[in-house]
Structures are given as C-alpha cells and as structure tokens.
Design a protein around this nucleic acid. Structure first.
Length: 282
DNA sequence: CACCACCCCTGGACGC
DNA sequence: TGCGTCCAGGGGTGGT
C-alpha cells in the first residue's frame, strides 16, 4: 500500500519517538513475517537511526544490527504509549516494548512499537549491519525516486520497451514509486502510461523525473495518501489523497482539460489517465 | 534476457 | 442480515 511518501512521512513521525530509545522486550507472534533465516529483532539494543530507501525503512541499532521493515499493501508500523491499548490488536505480528526519550518535555516514555499487517505481503528482514542490508538487498533497487536525477532515469527508461508506467513501478528501475504516484507523475509529466518507455523522448523522461520529485515531495509534506489503512507512526492519516489529480478519479473530468479520465489495466494494476492531456509515444 | 500472468492474503465495499 | 463477487497502495516466481 504505502509508497515512498508514506514511508518518508512514517520515518519522520517515528524518529522523535525511536531515536535513542532502548528495546526492552520483543514479542514475535508469527515467525514467518521475518523473511530472513536468522531472527534478531534488536532486543536490548538502542535505536540509533532510521534509514529509508524507496518504500523500505530500516531501524539501525547501536551495534549496527539492523531490522528492515517493508509494509507491503496493508502493513503498519506504529507507536502506542504503554497506558493506551493497541488501536487494533488483530494481525499484530511483532511488538517491541521500548523506552523512549521522546516525551513532550524530554521525559522518557515507555511504549510499544508494533508491526501490523493483515494481508502479510509485508515483512521484516534482519541484518548484521546497515552495510549488509545495502549490499545484499538495496543494491538490487534503483536510485531513490525522491531525488532521482533526470539523466539517470532517462538512461534507465531508454533501456526497456515496457510501458512507461510498468517501468516506473519496477523497483529495480527507480525505488519508491507505486500505483498511485505512478499515475500522478505521468499525469503531471503529460505522458500516456501506455507509452513504450524507450519511445518516450529524453525531454519527456526529464519531465517525468521532475514530476516525480515534485509530487513525492509535496505528498510527503501532506503526510502521504491514506486510501484505506495507511497511518503514520502516531496513527494519523495522510491528506495527499485530496490532491490526487487522476488516481481514484476515473470517469471524472480532467482537472486540466475537462476530458473524462479513462480507466484501464496495465501490469495488472488499475491505471487512470487523461487521454487528451497525456501524450502517447509508440 | 525481458516481459507477463499468476499467486500470495485478508478485509471492505457493493449487489442481490 | 447474510452471502457472493470484486477490488485494493506490495512483491516474487515460473512460463513463454
């Protein structure tokens, strides 16, 4: 579910609560949500840093030991103070009891960080160090979409014949773009999602890179898009959904030209675009 | 190698 | 109210 802006906002919302916090206890309710052979979920460790790449978030501890969280379609990573009960205890697969320094007046706060994921498309991965995570996993991903350089993206899109939207969804090409923002980015860049990536002119590749940076950045500042269950580290919903120009607006008028927005399926994903504003290259 | 269809899993919305 | 169908922001894999 969550794409780059939701994870980036999540990171920002968790940092005040988790940085410098110590993990007092870890309860894992489903072994199979940990996707690595070894399980080390930072019991006893102090959290030193949160690092994001694309849609993935890593919790890095004082010893370097790192837990990677991927939320998949329905995952949530959230903090709940000890005195409150978990908002939804069903499908909670892992709970870290932590002592945090992030209280309102700098007082320590005890609470639980919990990973909840009804569909279980997400998961947790354990690594000895951030460097191991980067070399074993993140090395397979493309550059982060939030700061994607036009020349790099263009060079990557030129190498594939797939539909440009399919290429943008491929995390090996560029990391962080999912179904919502792919449609929003292509609308802003005025490129038809069905266009073959290598037929799109380089100037348009640059427009796509610029649109990606602009849309992702403004979605982060709006707290992301909450379609159904996305919530930030404090359980709050995102507001960017109010600014979607195409996603979820099939059959409605294009905000730019009033043409009816079309819905089709591309790479098994629903795709909304304006057949008039968005140019098709084939 | 590149691409595509299919599968993984649950819950919510909708039609009857 | 209950049941069936369809849909959903994610990715991996095996076949062509």
């Amino acid at each position: 579910m969550p794409e780059l802006p939701e994870i980036a906002h999540l990171k920002g919302s968790l940092e005040p609560l988790l940085l410098g916090a110590t993990v007092r206890r870890v309860r894992l309710f489903r072994r199979d949500v940990v996707r690595t052979a070894a399980v080390n979920l930072l019991s006893g460790r102090t959290i030193r840093g949160l690092v994001r790449h694309g849609k993935e978030l890593a919790l890095v501890s004082d010893t370097g030991r790192t837990v990677l969280v991927h939320l998949g379609m329905s995952g949530q990573l959230s903090f709940c103070p000890t005195r409150r009960r978990l908002p939804r205890p069903d499908h909670v697969h892992c709970v870290w009891t932590i002592e945090s320094q992030g209280g309102p007046d700098g007082h320590s706060v005890r609470g639980r960080l919990f990973f909840r994921d009804p569909r279980r498309f997400g998961g947790l991965w354990c690594f000895d160090s951030l460097e191991t995570l980067e070399s074993e996993r993140w090395s397979r991903l493309g550059p982060d979409a939030l700061a994607i350089k036009a020349a790099i993206l263009s060079e990557r899109l030129r190498r594939t014949t797939r539909a440009v939207k399919t290429a943008l969804l491929d995390q090996r090409v560029v990391a962080g773009i999912g179904n919502i923002y792919a449609d929003e980015i292509l609308f802003r860049a005025a490129v038809d999602p069905r266009s073959s990536a290598h037929r799109v002119p380089a100037a348009k590749h640059r427009d796509i890179a610029r649109a990606a940076r602009a849309i992702l950045a403004s979605a982060i500042s709006a707290g992301g898009s909450s379609i159904r269950d996305y919530r930030d580290g404090n359980g709050r919903a995102g507001r960017f959904v109010q600014r979607h120009k195409v996603y979820g607006r099939a059959g409605h008028a294009c905000v730019r030209c009033r043409t009816t927005l079309r819905l089709l399926r591309l790479a098994q994903r629903s795709t909304v675009f304006c057949p008039s504003c968005q140019e098709l290259f084939r």
